[in-house]
Design a protein around this nucleic acid. Structure first.
Length: 813
RNA sequence: GCCGAAGUGGCGGAACUGGCAGACGCGCUCGACUCAAAAUCGAGUGGGGUGACCCCCCGUGCGGGUUCGAUCCCCGCCUUCGGCACCA
């Protein structure tokens, strides 16, 4: 018998698939008829070509490959494309590190990633390959930007922004983690700059409410997105400073506590502060406080452990329900970015206001109590129906929800307030002061202002420049020939926008372009994109729970509103895979704990590696890489190889004889199919196939051995397609990749007998084989007649007998 | 602090709807093959008692509860991981 040699087998089958265009799915002819084939769009997140593939990619794409193979073999046209998220900081930083041009380095990395992907044997439709840095792609990114701009959803404004001093660019809110740059970890700085934004906040409600259109997303991802969007319903209430004739609105989720508002607080950045204190005795102290606050970093300021600080302005403002004058303070626990930058402080019913009032000796007035009249400590923050208003005029006695509605109605009648909704979500800051990105297709004209580049002039090509190192302003600004242009409006000399787009813009619609990757008429043709998309199954890392997954959802909603696509959500089902660790840490070059896919392939073959990354444990959980683990799956493939060659393999009559081994094979079919299709569980099917192979090797002369071997090979194909295809051929068949997925025969799953577990008082005391159709009474009688059970009963009559059909009987004394 | 997930042999994990805890793999032990080793094959492998076998007791982070029966449900706690964190 020939040895199992993955190094010989694997490249051979990869060539066969390539020649046969085995995994290419053509687009339908237009117009699309009624009788279309069932189809499934299976997609994994596309890689950044900033280096080579790592084990995380191997797990991600192998998962998708298993799903894709099984769907193909169960009758679907499966769209499974691949591309590269080529623009952006990771690729650009890699280029700077390696000292080449970003394009050269990126394209070299793409070539090596593609080579690795082919070597893994993933079933990808390579005819649809795209890369976001190619003009054929980013032309349409720019086109979408223009349409967003037209619709008022892309705009430029000067705003306080987060600046990464290391990467020398601004960042989106989503890219700031604990006050630090998500990429490089440097502490971010605050700056005021004119920047481009997408109006994500206009879609805050849609992003929340349309979660109901999703078929299956992990709860934790939905929760994270909900928290990120942070919708809270409440009211805006106007407070007046009579002496200065100024109105300052506040946002509150607790209008019912207005009677307990005993002071008022402004954020240090609030624009009215200067006017309030000008020429007063408090002026100097307030200005000093404001300066101190400005000097603090976001990290310092966000530390909730820190004792509250603040300063009295000496001014008062009128509480609109009580008519009382309450003091106005300035304190940095109030944020300018949320709500209106001013709050009414209700110390009795808010933790932060309470802490502040205690520290500065301000009034604390209780206006809510438990509905059952019980005693509670302050601050009392319950806003459910088990709380009710007190000391609140006409609203006293109402439950909190009633009081909230009542106060809002009262405010609306008098035009001093209204129901409104607050969001934590901010608009998406998309401009970056970096070279390696999609140019923003806008022109600055002294006469016309900011003018869009006409659609016919797209793409605005990224210019070739010598020095693309980040230096605080976009490197594109130094490409003077490129910057100088004429205004599309008036024809006078004008300057191009020199910022580039955030990489997340590129990756917010790539999955649509795959559907129609070569069209030069539109980003995608509507009929084609609606044929394939939305994605049926998306697979990727949890680290994109907010960033990419929220942006892509936003993009698709806008594109739907613009009529570009016919659906509202990009990804119907989402599966987030866990990370692979080694020696307790994420694999990284600096920790020296990396196992490279190339190394594993060379030693054990792609099939053994593919099996191992999914056999490690549940795919959605983190897992620890064990070098001996891949040896195990490699050993299993050797065993499978041997069993197929040695099992005698006489040609059996079809259908195969009904033997214990044939029944084991049918059980394996049922288990593997159910685990992959219904449970989306990938480790246990491998165990089931291993069991089957073990059974075959124990009974090589079983008359159904051939059938059992064919079943094992067929079931392992999604995981280990090369060796499966090879053995399938040696069993006298061909093209396993398009052979229908096996179906378990229900009759073969039926058993005539089963092992009855006999318990006494819940403890297992005996097991016997009994007929499947045995009656309950007979089960009890049989159980009691067993010598061991009779001995335990010792003549006593069981108080109760519980029979679980086809499982067990429990005799209770 | 708030929200969420998880905790099972020496290790990774299995047990799907409350019904035989530890499937499958790794590791280890013994045996076969071999001059020998590796590879491969076979047997065994949660802890304890007793010990030829049978059998008994304990056992799924800890403490309680519900139930004939709990890894699974409920209450309280501990630990680990993840998210959010002055969001008014």
């Amino acid at each position: 018998m020939e040895r199992y040699d993955p190094q010989a087998i694997e490249p051979r089958w990869q060539a066969v698939w390539e020649n046969a265009k085995a995994f290419e799915v053509p687009n339908p002819d237009l117009p699309i008829g009624e009788d279309v084939r069932p189809r499934s769009y299976v997609l994994e997140m596309l890689p950044y070509p900033s280096g080579e593939l790592h084990m995380g990619h191997v797990k991600n794409y192998t998962l998708g490959d298993v799903v894709a193979h099984v769907r193909r073999r169960t009758g679907y046209d499966v769209l499974r494309p691949m591309g590269y998220d080529a623009f952006g900081l990771p690729a650009e930083n890699a280029a700077i590190r390696e000292g080449g041009h970003p394009r050269t380095v990126t394209e070299r990395n793409i070539a090596s990633i593609r080579r690795q992907m082919l070597r893994m044997g993933w079933s990808i439709d390579w005819s649809r390959e795209i890369s976001t840095h190619e003009p054929e792609y980013y032309r349409w990114t720019q086109w979408l930007f223009l349409r967003f701009h037209e619709a008022g959803l892309a705009y430029r404004r000067e705003a306080p922004v987060k600046w990464c001093p290391n990467d020398q660019t601004v960042l989106a809110n989503e890219q700031v983690v604990d006050g630090c740059c998500e990429r490089c970890g440097a502490e971010v700085e605050a700056k005021n700059l004119a920047q481009w934004f997408f109006r994500t906040t206009a879609y805050a409600d849609a992003l929340l409410d349309e979660m109901s259109l999703l078929e299956d997303w992990p709860d934790r991802v939905l929760t994270m997105q909900r928290n990120w969007i942070g919708r809270s319903r409440g009211a805006e209430v106007s407070f007046r400073i009579e002496s200065l004739d100024i109105e300052i609105p506040v946002f509150t989720t607790r209008p019912d506590t207005l009677f307990g508002a005993t002071f008022f607080v402004l954020a240090p950045e609030h624009p009215l502060i200067e006017r309030l204190v000008a020429g007063t005795t408090a002026e100097e102290a307030v200005q000093a406080y404001v300066r101190r606050a400005a000097a603090q970093t976001a990290v310092e300021r966000a530390n909730p452990e820190r004792e509250k600080s603040g300063v009295d302005t000496g001014r008062t403002i009128t509480n609109p329900v009580t008519g009382e004058e309450i003091p106005i303070w300035v304190a940095d626990y109030v944020l300018m970015e949320y709500g209106t930058g001013a709050i009414m402080a209700v110390p009795a019913h808010d933790e932060r206001d309470y802490e502040f009032a205690v520290r500065f000796g301000l009034d604390i007035r209780r206006v809510v109590e438990p509905a059952d009249g019980g005693e509670v400590e302050l601050p009392y923050v319950d806003k459910s129906t088990s709380a009710r208003s007190i000391n609140s005029g006409q609203f006293s006695g109402l439950t909190t929800p009633e009081a909230i509605d009542g106060v809002i109605a009262w405010l609306e009648e008098r035009s001093i307030g209204r129901a409104t909704t607050g969001y934590r979500l901010r608009d998406w800051l998309l401009s970056r002061q970096r070279y390696w990105g999609c140019p923003i297709p806008m022109v600055h004209c002294d006469t016309c202002g900011v003018v869009p580049v006409p659609e016919a002039d797209l793409p605005v090509l990224l210019p070739e420049i010598d020095d693309y190192l980040p230096k605080g302003r976009s490197p594109l600004a130094s490409a003077e020939d490129w910057v100088a242009t004429t205004c599309p409006g008036c024809g006078s000399p004008a300057r191009r926008e020199t910022d580039t787009m955030d990489t997340f813009v590129d990756s917010s619609w790539y999955f649509l372009r795959y559907c129609d990757p070569h069209t030069d008429a539109a980003p995608v043709r509507r009929e084609i994109v609606d044929y394939w998309a939305p994605v049926n199954q998306y697979i990727g890392g949890i680290e994109h729970a907010i960033l990419h997954l929220l942006y892509a959802r936003f993009f698709v909603k806008v594109m739907n509103d613009l009529g570009v696509v016919g659906f509202r959500e990009p990804f119907l089902r989402l599966f987030t895979q866990g990370m692979i660790y080694r020696f307790g840490a994420k694999m990284s070059k600096s920790k020296g704990n990396v196992v490279s896919p190339d190394e594993s392939i060379e030693r054990y073959g792609a099939d053994a590696l593919r099996l191992y990354v999914l056999f490690m444990g549940p795919a959605d959980e983190d897992a620890e890489w064990q070098d001996s683990g891949i040896e195990g799956t490699s050993r299993f493939l050797n065993r499978l190889w041997r069993v197929v060659h040695q099992a005698g393999i006489p040609t059996e009559p079809a259908p195969p004889p009904d033997t214990p081994l044939a029944r084991r094979a049918h059980h394996a079919i049922a288990k593997v199919s159910d685990d992959i299709q219904r449970r989306f569980q990938f480790n246990t099917p491998i165990a089931a196939i291993m069991e089957l192979v073990n059974e075959i090797s124990k009974a090589p002369d079983d008359p159904a051995a051939r059938f059992a071997c064919e079943t094992a090979v067929s079931l392992v194909q999604p995981y280990a397609p090369h060796v499966a295809e090879e053995l399938w051929g040696r069993l006298g068949h061909s093209r396993l990749w398009e052979t229908p997925w096996p179906v378990a025969d229900p009759a073969m799953l039926q058993r005539e007998t089963f092992e009855l577990v006999v318990q006494v008082n819940g403890k297992v005391r005996e097991r016997i084989e009994v007929a499947t159709d045995i009656g309950d009474d007979e089960i009890v009688a049989t159980a009691r007649s067993l010598p061991r059970i009779a001995e335990l009963l010792d003549g006593r009559e069981p108080r109760k007998a519980i029979v679980v059909p086809r499982k067990l009987v429990n005799l209770v004394l």
